[in-house]
Nucleic acid binder design. Structure first.
Lengths: 128, 128
DNA sequence: TCAACTTACATGCACGTGCATTTGATGTCA
DNA sequence: TGACATCAAATGCACGTGCATGTAAGTTGA
C-alpha cells in the first residue's frame, strides 16, 4: 500500500517529535526551576555571548532574530523580559537610531554561566 | 576546552530544532490553508483513524492523550474544536460514564483523507 | 452503606507566541 | 528638498497551551 520511504518518513517525524518534546520540556522546566529563565530567554543569552566575545557587543535585535526560531515580536518581548530582569541592556545605535545594541550585564553573564551547565546536562541526557 | 561529545550534542540539538521548527511550521500553515486544520487537530484525527479501524471506535480521550504530546486540557479543547467543526463525535461510554468515546464522522474521514496527502508531502519535503 | 480516594474530563486563568499594524528613523529618486 | 518606499522595533489582539482546580462518576475498605 505505502512506499517504504513514506513509512520511514513518518517514523522519522515521530522520533523527531519525541526528542524535541522531551528535550525542550525538560530544558524549559529545569532552566525555570534552577535559574528563573525560559528556554527562549536562555537562547537569547546564548547567542549574545557568542556575538559579544571581547565585549564588542555587536548584537542587534535583527542579528539575533536571524539566528533564532522566534518571530520579531516574540523576540522583542523576550528582550524586554531580560532587560526588566537586569540581565541585558538595550543601547540605541548612534549610526542607526532605529536599531538596538544588546549587551549582557555582569548579572546576565553570571546567570548565563550558571544556566549553561544545566542546559548542557539536559542535552547530554537526551541526545548523548 | 570542551569535550567533543558536548560539541556534538549542541550541534545535534541545533539540527533537531531546525528540522522540528521548519517542518511543524509548514505543516501548520499548509494544513490550515488547505484544509482548515491545525496540526494538533490533524494529529488527533490521525490517531483516531488508527484506533478506529473497522469502526470499532475504541478511542477514548485517555488513549489519545497517551499517544500525543499534548496536555489533558489542550486535548480536551482540541477535541471540542473538532466536534464543533463536525469532524468527530463524542459519545458517553455506557460502562464508564466519565469516559468519552470519540468517533470520526463521515465529514471527518473525508477531511482527514484530503489532509493526509498534504501532511505526507510536507514530511517528504523536509525529511525525505 | 458511607466516607475517602481516585479517575476522566472540563474550565478559569496566566502566559508566550504569531500576525497585523503602528511609530519613528533611514534610504531613494525626481 | 519633498514625497514615498523601506527598515527596526514596539504594540494591540487573538489564539493555543499548561497548570491548577472543579465536577461528576467510579472504586475501595471498614
Amino acid at each position: 500500500m505505502e512506499a517504504p520511504a513514506e513509512v520511514d518518513v513518518c517514523a522519522k517525524w515521530s522520533e523527531t517529535l519525541r526528542v524535541y518534546h522531551n528535550t525542550s520540556c525538560e530544558l524549559e522546566s529545569e532552566l525555570q526551576a534552577r535559574h528563573a529563565l525560559g528556554l527562549s530567554e536562555f537562547e537569547v543569552l546564548l547567542i549574545l555571548t557568542r556575538n559579544c566575545s571581547g565585549h564588542t557587543s555587536k548584537a542587534k535585535m535583527k542579528d539575533i532574530e536571524a539566528e533564532m526560531y522566534l518571530s520579531q515580536s516574540a523576540l522583542s518581548r523576550t528582550v524586554t523580559r531580560l532587560e526588566k530582569a537586569g540581565l541585558i541592556t538595550r543601547a540605541v545605535c548612534d549610526f542607526d537610531r532605529r536599531a538596538n545594541f544588546l549587551m549582557l550585564t555582569p548579572a546576565g553573564e553570571a546567570r548565563f554561566n550558571e544556566a549553561k551547565t544545566t542546559h548542557r546536562a539536559v542535552l547530554l541526557k537526551h541526545l548523548g
